[in-house]
Amino acid sequence: MSGYVDLFVYGTLKQGFANHRTFCKKALKIRAATIAGQLYDLPVGYPAVQIPDNSILLKAGQDPARDAGRQHRFRGLTQPAPEGAQGLVHGEWIRLPDPPRTLPHVDALEGVRPDGRGEYRRALVPAWTEDGPAALWVYWMPRLPPGARHLADGTWPARP
Rank of each mutant, 00 (worst) to 15 (best):
V125S: 08
D98K: 04
P126Y: 12
L58T: 10
H105Y: 04
I56K: 12
A108P: 02
P145D: 12
P43Q: 11
V138K: 09
A127D: 00
G61R: 13
D115S: 14
E92R: 04
F74V: 00
G91N: 12
P52A: 14
I56R: 14
A135I: 00
D98L: 10
A85V: 14
P100F: 15
V125A: 06
A81Y: 04
W140I: 05
H105G: 04
W93Y: 02
E119M: 13
R159P: 01
P82W: 05
P64R: 02
G45Q: 13
P114R: 15
I51M: 03
A135W: 00
G45K: 12
L88Q: 15
R122M: 09
G61E: 11
Y120V: 09
G76H: 07
V125W: 09
D63I: 00
V44H: 04
A135D: 07
G61D: 12
P142T: 06
E110T: 14
T129D: 12
E130Q: 09
P97G: 11
L103S: 01
A123S: 15
Y139S: 08
G84I: 08
A127C: 01
G111V: 06
D98S: 13
A65H: 08
A60G: 13
N54H: 11
A48G: 09
R75P: 05
V44A: 14
V138N: 09
I94S: 04
L151M: 03
I94L: 02
H72L: 15
A152W: 01
K59S: 09
D53W: 11
V44S: 10
R149T: 14
V125D: 09
A81K: 07
F74P: 10
G45D: 10
D107Q: 09
G87L: 00
A108M: 03
G87T: 00
R143M: 07
L136P: 05
R70F: 12
P157T: 05
T78C: 02
D131K: 10
H150Q: 10
V44E: 15
G154L: 02
E130V: 10
K59P: 03
G111P: 08
H72R: 14
P160S: 13
P52W: 07
D115A: 14
H105T: 06
R101L: 10
